[in-house]
Amino acid sequence: MSQPTPVMPAPEAPVKSLAKPEMKRTREGFGHGLLELGEKRPNVFVLVGDLSGSTNVSFFAEKFPDRFLQIGIAEQNMMCVAAGLAALGKIPYLATYGAFASCRSADQMRVTVAYTDLPVKIGGAHGGISVGPDGATHQAMEEIAIVRSIPNMKLIVPCDYWETKKATIAMADDPHPNYIRFGREPVPVVTDANTPFTLGKANVLREGKDIALIACGVMVYEALVAADALAERGIQARVVNMHTLKPIDVDAIERAARECGAIVTAEEHQVNGGLGGAVAEVVVRTHPVPMELVAVHDRFGRSGKQEELMAAFGIKSPDVIAAAERALRRKKG
Protein backbone atom coordinates (compact mmCIF):
# COMPACT_ATOMS: atom_id res chain seq x y z
CA MET A 1 0.00 0.00 0.00
CA SER A 2 1.46 3.34 -0.96
CA GLN A 3 -0.58 5.37 1.53
CA PRO A 4 0.62 5.05 5.11
CA THR A 5 -1.90 3.66 7.53
CA PRO A 6 -2.73 6.29 10.13
CA VAL A 7 -1.87 5.34 13.67
CA MET A 8 -5.04 4.11 15.32
CA PRO A 9 -6.03 6.29 18.26
CA ALA A 10 -8.09 3.45 19.65
CA PRO A 11 -9.01 -0.07 18.66
CA GLU A 12 -11.45 -0.04 15.76
CA ALA A 13 -13.78 -2.72 16.95
CA PRO A 14 -15.70 -2.70 20.16
CA VAL A 15 -15.30 -6.33 21.13
CA LYS A 16 -18.15 -6.83 23.54
CA SER A 17 -17.29 -10.04 25.28
CA LEU A 18 -14.53 -12.42 24.34
CA ALA A 19 -15.72 -14.96 26.87
CA LYS A 20 -19.27 -15.14 25.56
CA PRO A 21 -19.22 -13.70 22.06
CA GLU A 22 -22.20 -13.44 19.80
CA MET A 23 -21.95 -16.26 17.25
CA LYS A 24 -22.90 -15.74 13.62
CA ARG A 25 -22.19 -17.43 10.31
CA THR A 26 -19.90 -15.65 7.84
CA ARG A 27 -21.77 -17.29 4.96
CA GLU A 28 -24.82 -15.33 6.08
CA GLY A 29 -22.75 -12.19 5.69
CA PHE A 30 -22.05 -13.24 2.10
CA GLY A 31 -25.75 -13.94 1.49
CA HIS A 32 -26.87 -10.65 3.03
CA GLY A 33 -24.17 -8.71 1.20
CA LEU A 34 -25.41 -10.12 -2.10
CA LEU A 35 -28.96 -9.20 -1.20
CA GLU A 36 -27.91 -5.59 -0.65
CA LEU A 37 -25.94 -5.58 -3.90
CA GLY A 38 -28.94 -6.97 -5.75
CA GLU A 39 -30.94 -3.91 -4.73
CA LYS A 40 -28.20 -1.42 -5.51
CA ARG A 41 -26.67 -2.81 -8.65
CA PRO A 42 -28.73 -4.14 -11.54
CA ASN A 43 -25.62 -5.65 -13.14
CA VAL A 44 -24.82 -8.01 -10.26
CA PHE A 45 -25.45 -11.66 -11.13
CA VAL A 46 -25.11 -14.65 -8.85
CA LEU A 47 -24.05 -18.10 -10.07
CA VAL A 48 -24.09 -21.22 -7.98
CA GLY A 49 -22.94 -24.80 -8.39
CA ASP A 50 -25.86 -26.65 -6.78
CA LEU A 51 -25.12 -25.21 -3.33
CA SER A 52 -27.65 -22.38 -3.02
CA GLY A 53 -28.63 -23.21 0.52
CA SER A 54 -25.26 -23.90 2.04
CA THR A 55 -23.62 -20.84 0.47
CA ASN A 56 -26.64 -18.69 1.39
CA VAL A 57 -27.00 -17.30 -2.13
CA SER A 58 -30.58 -18.55 -1.84
CA PHE A 59 -31.40 -15.14 -0.30
CA PHE A 60 -30.45 -13.47 -3.59
CA ALA A 61 -32.10 -16.20 -5.66
CA GLU A 62 -35.48 -15.63 -4.03
CA LYS A 63 -35.39 -11.88 -4.49
CA PHE A 64 -33.70 -11.64 -7.89
CA PRO A 65 -34.47 -14.86 -9.76
CA ASP A 66 -33.78 -13.31 -13.16
CA ARG A 67 -30.17 -12.56 -12.18
CA PHE A 68 -29.59 -15.86 -10.45
CA LEU A 69 -27.99 -18.60 -12.49
CA GLN A 70 -28.02 -22.22 -11.43
CA ILE A 71 -25.01 -23.91 -13.02
CA GLY A 72 -25.32 -27.38 -11.54
CA ILE A 73 -22.35 -29.41 -10.35
CA ALA A 74 -19.91 -27.96 -12.87
CA GLU A 75 -17.45 -25.60 -11.23
CA GLN A 76 -15.16 -25.28 -14.23
CA ASN A 77 -18.05 -24.22 -16.42
CA MET A 78 -19.28 -21.86 -13.71
CA MET A 79 -15.97 -20.00 -13.52
CA CYS A 80 -15.94 -19.42 -17.28
CA VAL A 81 -19.67 -18.61 -17.64
CA ALA A 82 -19.01 -15.94 -15.02
CA ALA A 83 -16.12 -14.70 -17.16
CA GLY A 84 -18.40 -14.46 -20.19
CA LEU A 85 -20.91 -12.41 -18.21
CA ALA A 86 -18.13 -10.18 -16.87
CA ALA A 87 -16.89 -9.60 -20.43
CA LEU A 88 -20.31 -8.05 -21.12
CA GLY A 89 -19.97 -5.64 -18.20
CA LYS A 90 -21.87 -7.67 -15.61
CA ILE A 91 -20.52 -8.24 -12.09
CA PRO A 92 -20.90 -11.98 -11.55
CA TYR A 93 -20.52 -13.50 -8.08
CA LEU A 94 -20.12 -17.25 -8.04
CA ALA A 95 -20.50 -19.49 -5.04
CA THR A 96 -19.33 -22.97 -4.24
CA TYR A 97 -17.19 -24.58 -1.59
CA GLY A 98 -13.72 -23.11 -1.38
CA ALA A 99 -12.18 -26.54 -1.90
CA PHE A 100 -13.73 -26.60 -5.36
CA ALA A 101 -13.54 -22.91 -6.23
CA SER A 102 -9.81 -22.76 -5.55
CA CYS A 103 -8.74 -26.19 -6.77
CA ARG A 104 -11.30 -27.69 -9.17
CA SER A 105 -11.52 -24.51 -11.21
CA ALA A 106 -8.03 -23.13 -10.54
CA ASP A 107 -7.01 -23.27 -14.20
CA GLN A 108 -10.19 -21.47 -15.26
CA MET A 109 -9.56 -18.85 -12.56
CA ARG A 110 -5.98 -18.41 -13.74
CA VAL A 111 -6.36 -18.34 -17.53
CA THR A 112 -9.86 -17.13 -18.34
CA VAL A 113 -10.61 -14.92 -15.34
CA ALA A 114 -7.31 -13.57 -14.03
CA TYR A 115 -5.27 -13.40 -17.25
CA THR A 116 -8.15 -11.52 -18.89
CA ASP A 117 -8.51 -9.53 -15.63
CA LEU A 118 -12.30 -9.80 -15.55
CA PRO A 119 -14.27 -8.68 -12.48
CA VAL A 120 -15.43 -12.16 -11.51
CA LYS A 121 -16.17 -12.38 -7.77
CA ILE A 122 -15.45 -15.83 -6.39
CA GLY A 123 -17.14 -16.90 -3.18
CA GLY A 124 -15.37 -19.81 -1.50
CA ALA A 125 -17.61 -21.20 1.21
CA HIS A 126 -16.72 -23.71 3.92
CA GLY A 127 -13.17 -22.46 4.24
CA GLY A 128 -10.82 -24.00 6.77
CA ILE A 129 -10.92 -26.93 9.13
CA SER A 130 -13.83 -25.42 11.06
CA VAL A 131 -16.13 -26.95 8.42
CA GLY A 132 -16.06 -29.91 10.78
CA PRO A 133 -17.75 -33.26 10.14
CA ASP A 134 -17.46 -33.23 6.31
CA GLY A 135 -13.77 -34.02 6.67
CA ALA A 136 -10.62 -33.34 4.68
CA THR A 137 -12.08 -33.19 1.15
CA HIS A 138 -14.36 -30.31 2.07
CA GLN A 139 -12.03 -28.42 4.41
CA ALA A 140 -10.39 -25.88 2.10
CA MET A 141 -6.96 -25.06 3.49
CA GLU A 142 -4.95 -24.19 0.41
CA GLU A 143 -6.88 -21.20 -0.96
CA ILE A 144 -4.54 -18.47 0.23
CA ALA A 145 -1.53 -20.18 -1.33
CA ILE A 146 -3.30 -20.77 -4.63
CA VAL A 147 -5.19 -17.53 -5.10
CA ARG A 148 -2.50 -15.10 -4.01
CA SER A 149 -0.01 -16.63 -6.43
CA ILE A 150 -2.17 -15.66 -9.43
CA PRO A 151 -1.59 -12.17 -10.91
CA ASN A 152 -4.54 -9.73 -10.91
CA MET A 153 -6.36 -11.66 -8.16
CA LYS A 154 -7.35 -10.04 -4.88
CA LEU A 155 -8.09 -12.20 -1.83
CA ILE A 156 -10.16 -11.44 1.24
CA VAL A 157 -10.52 -13.63 4.33
CA PRO A 158 -12.98 -11.77 6.56
CA CYS A 159 -13.12 -12.43 10.29
CA ASP A 160 -16.84 -12.44 11.02
CA TYR A 161 -20.36 -11.88 9.77
CA TRP A 162 -20.14 -8.11 9.47
CA GLU A 163 -16.81 -8.09 7.75
CA THR A 164 -17.95 -10.74 5.28
CA LYS A 165 -20.98 -8.66 4.42
CA LYS A 166 -18.94 -5.48 3.99
CA ALA A 167 -16.27 -7.22 1.95
CA THR A 168 -18.85 -8.84 -0.31
CA ILE A 169 -20.32 -5.43 -1.06
CA ALA A 170 -16.92 -3.72 -1.43
CA MET A 171 -15.78 -6.25 -4.01
CA ALA A 172 -18.34 -4.96 -6.49
CA ASP A 173 -16.46 -1.66 -6.70
CA ASP A 174 -13.20 -3.31 -7.73
CA PRO A 175 -12.94 -3.82 -11.50
CA HIS A 176 -10.69 -6.87 -11.07
CA PRO A 177 -11.16 -10.50 -10.05
CA ASN A 178 -11.61 -11.13 -6.33
CA TYR A 179 -11.84 -14.19 -4.13
CA ILE A 180 -13.56 -14.15 -0.75
CA ARG A 181 -13.19 -16.99 1.72
CA PHE A 182 -15.81 -17.62 4.37
CA GLY A 183 -16.92 -20.43 6.64
CA ARG A 184 -19.75 -22.75 7.51
CA GLU A 185 -20.17 -22.76 11.27
CA PRO A 186 -21.18 -19.79 13.44
CA VAL A 187 -18.08 -17.89 14.55
CA PRO A 188 -17.57 -15.10 17.12
CA VAL A 189 -18.58 -11.63 16.06
CA VAL A 190 -15.66 -9.29 16.72
CA THR A 191 -16.60 -6.25 14.61
CA ASP A 192 -19.87 -4.44 14.14
CA ALA A 193 -21.87 -2.73 11.43
CA ASN A 194 -19.80 0.45 11.79
CA THR A 195 -16.29 -0.97 11.86
CA PRO A 196 -14.48 0.47 8.82
CA PHE A 197 -13.61 -1.91 6.02
CA THR A 198 -11.29 -0.92 3.21
CA LEU A 199 -10.00 -3.54 0.81
CA GLY A 200 -6.26 -3.88 1.28
CA LYS A 201 -6.12 -1.98 4.58
CA ALA A 202 -5.68 -3.99 7.77
CA ASN A 203 -7.58 -3.10 10.93
CA VAL A 204 -5.83 -2.87 14.28
CA LEU A 205 -8.32 -4.32 16.77
CA ARG A 206 -6.13 -3.95 19.84
CA GLU A 207 -3.08 -1.78 20.43
CA GLY A 208 0.13 -3.10 21.93
CA LYS A 209 3.88 -2.76 21.52
CA ASP A 210 5.35 -5.98 22.90
CA ILE A 211 4.32 -8.31 20.11
CA ALA A 212 1.98 -8.24 17.13
CA LEU A 213 -0.58 -10.96 16.48
CA ILE A 214 -1.54 -10.79 12.80
CA ALA A 215 -4.52 -12.94 11.97
CA CYS A 216 -7.23 -13.52 9.39
CA GLY A 217 -10.62 -15.18 9.39
CA VAL A 218 -11.82 -16.93 12.51
CA MET A 219 -8.29 -16.74 13.94
CA VAL A 220 -8.80 -13.03 14.60
CA TYR A 221 -11.02 -14.00 17.52
CA GLU A 222 -8.45 -16.52 18.76
CA ALA A 223 -5.79 -13.80 18.58
CA LEU A 224 -7.96 -11.43 20.61
CA VAL A 225 -8.47 -14.10 23.26
CA ALA A 226 -4.73 -14.76 23.30
CA ALA A 227 -4.02 -11.03 23.63
CA ASP A 228 -6.28 -10.87 26.69
CA ALA A 229 -4.41 -13.74 28.31
CA LEU A 230 -1.04 -12.21 27.46
CA ALA A 231 -2.15 -8.89 28.97
CA GLU A 232 -2.76 -10.65 32.27
CA ARG A 233 0.94 -11.48 32.24
CA GLY A 234 1.84 -7.89 31.45
CA ILE A 235 2.46 -8.48 27.74
CA GLN A 236 0.71 -5.97 25.52
CA ALA A 237 -0.06 -7.61 22.18
CA ARG A 238 -1.23 -5.71 19.14
CA VAL A 239 -3.93 -7.57 17.22
CA VAL A 240 -4.04 -6.88 13.49
CA ASN A 241 -6.97 -8.14 11.45
CA MET A 242 -5.34 -8.83 8.07
CA HIS A 243 -8.63 -9.36 6.22
CA THR A 244 -7.10 -8.71 2.81
CA LEU A 245 -4.39 -11.23 1.94
CA LYS A 246 -3.77 -9.66 -1.43
CA PRO A 247 -2.89 -6.89 -1.84
CA ILE A 248 -1.49 -7.25 1.64
CA ASP A 249 -1.15 -4.18 3.85
CA VAL A 250 2.63 -3.78 3.71
CA ASP A 251 2.59 -0.67 5.85
CA ALA A 252 0.64 -2.28 8.71
CA ILE A 253 3.07 -5.23 8.71
CA GLU A 254 6.15 -3.05 8.63
CA ARG A 255 4.80 -0.93 11.48
CA ALA A 256 4.00 -4.06 13.48
CA ALA A 257 7.55 -5.31 12.96
CA ARG A 258 9.20 -1.99 13.84
CA GLU A 259 6.99 -1.10 16.80
CA CYS A 260 6.47 -4.56 18.34
CA GLY A 261 9.69 -6.36 17.41
CA ALA A 262 8.06 -9.81 17.16
CA ILE A 263 5.16 -11.22 15.16
CA VAL A 264 2.84 -14.20 15.40
CA THR A 265 0.60 -14.97 12.45
CA ALA A 266 -2.55 -17.02 12.88
CA GLU A 267 -4.63 -18.63 10.16
CA GLU A 268 -6.94 -21.54 9.54
CA HIS A 269 -4.93 -22.65 6.53
CA GLN A 270 -1.89 -24.68 5.52
CA VAL A 271 1.34 -23.15 6.75
CA ASN A 272 2.87 -23.39 3.28
CA GLY A 273 2.01 -20.28 1.30
CA GLY A 274 -0.56 -18.87 3.70
CA LEU A 275 -0.89 -15.69 5.74
CA GLY A 276 2.32 -16.45 7.66
CA GLY A 277 4.30 -16.70 4.46
CA ALA A 278 2.70 -13.56 3.05
CA VAL A 279 3.57 -11.58 6.18
CA ALA A 280 7.08 -13.02 6.25
CA GLU A 281 7.64 -11.89 2.66
CA VAL A 282 7.06 -8.32 3.84
CA VAL A 283 8.96 -8.67 7.12
CA VAL A 284 12.16 -10.00 5.54
CA ARG A 285 12.43 -7.10 3.15
CA THR A 286 11.37 -4.31 5.49
CA HIS A 287 12.29 -5.00 9.11
CA PRO A 288 13.22 -8.60 9.99
CA VAL A 289 12.01 -9.65 13.46
CA PRO A 290 11.34 -13.05 15.07
CA MET A 291 8.16 -14.64 13.70
CA GLU A 292 6.09 -17.66 14.65
CA LEU A 293 3.38 -19.14 12.45
CA VAL A 294 0.17 -20.59 13.84
CA ALA A 295 -1.40 -22.64 11.05
CA VAL A 296 -2.18 -26.17 9.95
CA HIS A 297 1.18 -27.82 9.46
CA ASP A 298 1.06 -29.62 6.13
CA ARG A 299 -1.69 -32.07 6.99
CA PHE A 300 -5.10 -32.90 5.61
CA GLY A 301 -8.02 -32.33 7.94
CA ARG A 302 -10.43 -34.95 9.27
CA SER A 303 -13.98 -35.24 10.55
CA GLY A 304 -14.85 -33.84 13.93
CA LYS A 305 -16.42 -30.89 15.71
CA GLN A 306 -15.13 -27.41 14.91
CA GLU A 307 -13.67 -26.82 18.37
CA GLU A 308 -11.98 -30.18 18.74
CA LEU A 309 -10.50 -29.98 15.25
CA MET A 310 -9.09 -26.50 15.81
CA ALA A 311 -7.52 -27.68 19.07
CA ALA A 312 -6.18 -30.88 17.54
CA PHE A 313 -4.64 -29.03 14.61
CA GLY A 314 -3.04 -26.43 16.85
CA ILE A 315 -4.95 -23.30 15.90
CA LYS A 316 -6.71 -22.28 19.12
CA SER A 317 -5.85 -19.34 21.36
CA PRO A 318 -3.50 -21.43 23.58
CA ASP A 319 -1.48 -22.19 20.44
CA VAL A 320 -1.31 -18.47 19.69
CA ILE A 321 -0.16 -17.79 23.25
CA ALA A 322 2.52 -20.49 23.05
CA ALA A 323 3.71 -19.08 19.72
CA ALA A 324 3.86 -15.60 21.24
CA GLU A 325 6.01 -16.90 24.07
CA ARG A 326 8.39 -18.49 21.60
CA ALA A 327 8.61 -15.33 19.57
CA LEU A 328 9.18 -13.20 22.68
CA ARG A 329 12.00 -15.48 23.82
CA ARG A 330 13.66 -15.09 20.45
CA LYS A 331 13.09 -11.33 20.55
CA LYS A 332 14.89 -11.06 23.90
CA GLY A 333 17.53 -13.62 23.03
Binding site: Q76, C80, A83, G84, A86, A87, Q108, R110, T112
Partner: peptide, 19 residues
Protein backbone atom coordinates in the same frame (compact mmCIF):
# COMPACT_ATOMS: atom_id res chain seq x y z
CA UNK B 1 -11.33 -12.91 -23.49
CA UNK B 2 -7.87 -14.44 -23.26
CA UNK B 3 -7.59 -18.13 -24.10
CA UNK B 4 -5.06 -20.89 -24.31
CA UNK B 5 -6.00 -23.63 -21.88
CA UNK B 6 -8.28 -25.91 -23.87
CA UNK B 7 -11.90 -26.61 -22.99
CA UNK B 8 -12.79 -23.24 -21.49
CA UNK B 9 -14.03 -21.18 -24.42
CA UNK B 10 -17.48 -22.67 -24.88
CA UNK B 11 -18.28 -21.85 -21.25
CA UNK B 12 -17.14 -18.26 -21.82
CA UNK B 13 -19.42 -18.05 -24.86
CA UNK B 14 -22.29 -19.50 -22.80
CA UNK B 15 -21.89 -16.60 -20.37
CA UNK B 16 -21.80 -14.14 -23.26
CA UNK B 17 -24.87 -15.67 -24.89
CA UNK B 18 -26.84 -15.79 -21.63
CA UNK B 19 -25.92 -12.21 -20.77
Amino acid sequence: VSAGSLGQGLSVCCGMAYG
